[in-house]
Structure formats: structure tokens, C-alpha cells
Design a protein around this nucleic acid. Sequence first.
DNA 1: TAACAGAATTAGGTTGACCTAAAATAGTGA
DNA 2: TCACTATTTTAGGTCAACCTAATTCTGTTA
Lengths: 229, 229
Amino acid sequence: MPPSRQRNANTESVDNYLKAILALSGPEEQRVSSTSLASRLGVAPASVTNMLQKLASSPLPLVEYERHRGVLLSAAGKRRALEVLRHHRLIETFLYEVLDYPLEEVHEEAERLEHFISERFEERIAVKLGHPKFDPHGHCIPAMDGKMPKQTSMPLTDLREQGTFVVDSVSDQDALLLRRLRAHGITPGARLQVTSRPPDDFVLRTSGVSKALHLSRDLAAAVRIRSAH
Amino acid sequence: MPPSRQRNANTESVDNYLKAILALSGPEEQRVSSTSLASRLGVAPASVTNMLQKLASSPLPLVEYERHRGVLLSAAGKRRALEVLRHHRLIETFLYEVLDYPLEEVHEEAERLEHFISERFEERIAVKLGHPKFDPHGHCIPAMDGKMPKQTSMPLTDLREQGTFVVDSVSDQDALLLRRLRAHGITPGARLQVTSRPPDDFVLRTSGVSKALHLSRDLAAAVRIRSAH
DNA sequence: TAACAGAATTAGGTTGACCTAAAATAGTGA
DNA sequence: TCACTATTTTAGGTCAACCTAATTCTGTTA
């Protein structure tokens, strides 16, 4: 078994930078500042600058970087970031559907594994799952070619009128929040009836539950909704 | 999402050292030399010495190391090595049984993933598989407490008499060999009838195949057999 | 338009895992 | 037991990804 002779490839760390840029640049693909990246990644701003310079000046640049003006993903960088995102969400779905993980635990495991699975693994779990379009948090899974349908949902905290809505997705970033949401019956697909005046106050009723529920700001911020078609 | 603040933990590299020591020290747990480790791991002997010194002098030493006398695993080191081995073999089994990998491909994927799966993941795939005792190569999977039944098989190349045997296991180290063995019907559990005088020559018949088969030394070395009970 | 605050970059470390080359040691056979 | 060879260790790097502190920008506000 000839062992790989190369140094600990930079993949994991690089992938995390790319993912963070993708997430922070938003649907409009705005430039992302070093500080915001630094705080998201939990490293010093100086480290970010360093890494960006490397990523931008490599033979196949993964980002477009201009001093003091922030970064953007290059085409190649975006491709890679979406591939990692696809890995992440497929793994989450797999853990949830096939291995019966509790919803709150899938993110952390996927966060580690996403960097190390092969194309074959990706393909096999996609087949096993029937090429799912959404992960268990309700997030869309990028297709193999990187295509993603446009978002049609909005943050619950942007709501300005009462009404009935469907939970589109919940944030996977915080296991504790997620567990609390689930305890209240707020999971993707659930029906929400908002009876207070948003966005100052969220009193709502969920599908099976008779009692009205007051949602704290943290919790509301972790929920995206769409109209109850 | 508070990101892990710690440096790229040494786990992966350390695990690989421990695994290599476990494999090389054999069932008798003999001391392992720096050179043999170096060549197995594909690094320079000096690097091995360095690492061993670190492993031996850490607060919880994973190896017992004496200058010029080779290493042994400590109790803690052995525990960890067996845990990683368990991960490896469970993952192989999982890839083979659940994700329909071809036998030759499971090793490489498991080799990467074994370092990064959680206890929960381990437990879930073990449950899913019904707590298997053997991986698809025929190797025994260590129990959670590290217990392993004693080997009762022997290398085909140690055979000194003709007779009929059962393939106990095949080496997972070389995908090409493995594919060739499989092409000849030599997979764990297969019946082998050896008709030449071993160990100079291996002419044999396998279960379903009528034609006699001459096995090259490489191939024979990758096969372990036990008596056809 | 000068000055200042805050953001970003540069300069100069640290650490872990590797490397090569040089020095030390152990085991062997004369 | 002495010397020689093969193994092992030490000494002194490199490189990637971090860090802190010092410096340089930028955009705004007086």
C-alpha cells in the first residue's frame, strides 16, 4: 500500500474558507470582508488576509481578492464551495434518514465528514436517498452541476403581517436552538399561524398544538418561512 | 456556532502511527523498529523517532519507547488503536453492505473516514449492521471493549500439505490484487482445494470453477486460510 | 481637507509534522 | 575485542496555518 507522499493537503482549511465566503456573500454575491470571515471562522483577521492572498494567487485561483476590498469566489471556488455544501447536506440527510440521527446532531457530524468523502461516497448516498432536493433542515441540496433553485422563503423575523405560513427551513448552526424549535413543533413543513404583530412579537400556533406559543427573538431568527401555498 | 478554537489536532497522524504499530507488532506484541514503521508509513525514519518521543512523553503516553529498542503500544495506545481498527472495519462493512461498494474500494474510503467519525456514528452503523463480527475481507472487528478472538487462520503461503481449506480472509492493502483474487473466486468463505505441493507452488480449485488455477506468489500471500471444518 | 476611528495588512513569531545530513549506537563476524 | 555495517538518533531545516503587535489604509466627519 503506497502511502500518499504529499503533505497534509490544505483541503479542509481551504474548504472552510470557501464555505464561509459562500455563506457570507449571500444570494447577491457581495464582496466579503476579512473581519466577517475572521469572526465566522474563529481566526484572527490577519490569518484571513494571509489565506486569501494564497487562495487568490494560486495557479487556479479560488477567490478574487483585492486589498481592502474584500473577496469573492471565483468560478472554480464557487464550484468547490457548492460541492462541499452538497456533501454537507447530503450527509445530513443520510445521517437523518438512514442512520436515524436526531436532527440536532447531524450538522456537527456532517461538518467533519464533508471534507473527506469521495465522489463515490457522495454518489452512493445520493442514490440511496433517491437524489433528495432538501436536507432535513429544509435547506436545498445543490445539484451535481452546482445549480440551486432560487430561494423563495424569508426569515420569520422579516415578517410584517399576521397570517398562516409554512416553515421552510430552520438554521442548523445551533443544536440547542434546534432542539427547542423541535420541542415546539417547529420543523420544516410545519404550519405556523402568526397572531401577534410581527416583527416585535411572535405569538403563534403550530399544527398539532392547541396552546399559543410565544417565540423568543433567537428562536424566531432561526426560522425561515414561506406562504402556505 | 462557536468554531473549535484549537489547532488542527494531531489525531489523524497519531492514529496512523498507532495503527501501524498495532499491525507490525503482531499477535505476540513484539517491539516494533523505527525503520519498519517508517517504511510502512512512508515517512523518514527520523520522523518516526521524533513522533515516538512525543507519543511516549505526553501526559498520557500512548507508546512505550526505549531508544534503539523499538516501541510497544501502552494500554491507552492499544485501546485507541483498536478503536480506530474497529472504526475502519465497521466502515468497510457498512460501505460494502449498505452502500454497495465494490470490495476493492472499501479500504481506501475507510482509511480516510476512520479518523473522523464520532462515537455516535460508530454505534449507529454497528446497530444498522447488526453488530457484525467480520468485515467483508474476513477480518475480525474488535468489540467495543477492544476484545478480539484469537486468530485461528494461517497465511496460505505457510501451507505445507495438500488439502481442502476455506478462505478465512484476504488482505485489503492492494485493490488490484484484491480484484484479481475476486476474479478467481477467492473471497472469504470460499472453498479451496490445493493440489500441488505448497509452499513452492499453488495449484488449486475453487468452489464453482472447474478449471485448476495457478496462484502467483503475490496473490497467495494475500490470502489466509483455515481448515474446512 | 485634516484628522481620526476602524478595518485591513504587514512583520515577525509559534507549532506540528515532515525532511536531509551528520553523528551515535548496536550487533556481527574476524 | 575490535572494527564495520546497518539502524537509529540528533541537529538543523521547510512549510502550512495559525498567532500578536505594529503599521497602513479608507471613509467619514468636523
